[in-house]
Design a binder for these strands. Structure first.
Length: 422
RNA sequence: GUGACUGUAGCUCAGCUGGUAGAGCCCUGGACUGUGACUCCGGUGGUCGCGGGUUCGAACCCCGUCAGUCACCCCA
């Protein structure tokens, strides 16, 4: 029988990597906490309809990337491909959005059936932040500032660039899309297959094509900025000046178009060149129409999401991984002294509750146990020896280069002695 | 979904034009050492991703399949 293995594109995260993940998660928690955001948790499965109506019927995500199936009741369900739709559904369903402001955050796995590659997996983790009921650019700036604070906390700010754009209201985008379509129709002989596919369904997506021929063609195309309302432009200008005063550098990228339909006005992405093809680490923007579109009372909103795997990759390639936790004390236990070791370990953990106290299990010579203590990077070894123990003493050894001492300590004093040293 | 490359011990890899597998590291037992580090001796561990085919014989050739990597596409 063939060995069972993980589903394609779904990764196990092993002990060697979990410290980096924990560092990332705790940094995120610290940042959202000090910005006053509250956690919300919502299911991994939703009605397929929710994603179709929010993300957009003709987007790649719902067209070909969702894990959808009929459950036993015949309802069509989907694993969430992103967080915003479920967050809005949950918040609206429980009345969190009715005439009030909310600052929310979530984290968890998302699912998209794409061909896996570096920084892109079929199950992946996102952190997301959503803010409801605030119409001005001040909240947009706050969201960006929050993300920038996280980069600072992680020490990766210098490897990230902020790109922003104003994509206007959906009606404006429709008008622009029509203009873009007719422009491209006039040059249909120069369009690549992908552009031809999107010509009528989603022409704006042609804007960020990586095909140089398309980009050459688009130089002469109508500009989205010319179709955006004065209000949108003013909102965007205010955002830029807020970012300026906050000291957050940005680039205006007129080609920046988000892949989900619900965005409007200002959108942004944090990008890096440290990750190969997956340059976007964080993306978001305003989505003022989504709540109403999903059946709620009209509520303005903005938010962003970031990909944890990509951030972990960045931490690794930039050498910002935390050190693996090392034991403070390793107890060397000769055969027949398990009870003494257990009692000693309990006493040490009571005195030093934050430290890792490892007691050797499985027997073996003291010499090889000590070797294990060194291998694990333990700072001290508490060596039980029968003749010493009869005198109520234990041997304490410092195992690091700086602390290469060896001393005999009364067993009862060992917790206090170690507390002094550590 | 498309393309290119890859798939041999836990890890990193070798295996010439086909003759049923090797090294280093790791782990482990022992010797030595004033109870780890250096040195010496020994040991565990492989359906050569999987399934077919060609052949007297395949890790090596052919087909399929699964998985990985990178890129396209798309996005976090």
């Amino acid at each position: 029988m063939a060995k069972l293995q993980a589903i394609r594109g779904m990764n196990d995260i092993l002990p060697a990597q979990t410290p980096t993940w924990q560092a990332l998660e705790s940094a995120f928690h610290r940042v959202v906490h000090r910005f006053g955001y509250q956690e919300i948790r919502f299911p991994v499965l939703e009605q397929t309809q929710l994603f179709k109506r929010s993300i957009g019927e003709v987007t790649d995500i719902v067209e070909k990337e969702m894990y959808s199936f009929d459950d036993r009741n015949g309802d069509n369900l989907s694993l969430r491909p992103e967080g915003t739709a479920g967050c809005v559904r949950a918040a609206d369903q429980h009345g969190l959005l009715y005439n009030q402001q909310q600052r929310l955050w979530y984290q968890g796995p998302m699912f998209r059936h794409e061909r896996p590659q570096k920084g892109r997996y079929r199950q992946f983790q996102q952190f997301g932040v959503e803010a409801f009921g605030m119409a001005g650019p001040d909240i947009d700036a706050e969201l960006i500032q929050l993300s920038a604070d996280l980069w600072r906390e992680l020490g990766i700010g210098s490897a990230l660039t902020l790109q922003i754009n104003n994509i206007g209201a959906s009606a404006e985008r429709r008008a622009y899309g029509a203009a873009l379509t007719s422009f491209l129709e006039a040059h249909s002989d120069r369009l690549d297959a992908d552009a031809r596919n999107r010509l009528y369904s989603n022409p704006l997506r042609i804007l960020d094509s990586k095909n140089p021929d398309m980009q050459d063609l688009l130089v002469a195309a109508p500009a989205l900025a010319d179709y955006v309302s004065d209000e949108s432009v003013q909102h965007f200008d205010e955002l830029k000046s807020l970012l300026d005063s906050a000291g957050i550098a940005y680039e205006v990228n007129p080609r920046l178009v988000r892949g989900l339909d619900y965005y409007n006005n200002c959108v942004f992405e944090w990008v890096t060149d440290a990750l190969g093809a997956q340059g976007t680490v964080c993306g978001g923007g305003r989505y003022d129409g989504l709540v109403e579109q999903l059946g709620g009372k009209a509520t303005v909103a903005a938010g962003f999401a970031m990909g944890s795997e990509r951030l972990v990759l960045m931490l690794e390639t930039l050498g910002k991984e935390p050190q693996a936790p090392r034991p403070a004390v390793y107890i060397v236990v000769p055969t027949g002294f398990a009870k003494d070791a257990l009692a000693l370990a309990t006493a040490l953990r009571a005195e030093l509750p934050e430290q890792i106290i490892l007691s050797h299990c499985g027997g073996g010579k003291p010499a090889s146990q000590l070797k294990k203590a060194f291998t694990l990077g333990a700072r001290y070894a508490a060596v039980i020896e029968s003749d010493l123990l009869e005198q109520g003493k234990i041997k304490l050894r410092g195992l690091t280069d700086e602390e290469g001492f060896e001393e005999q300590v009364p067993v009862d004093d060992l917790p206090r002695r170690l507390a002094e040293l550590i």
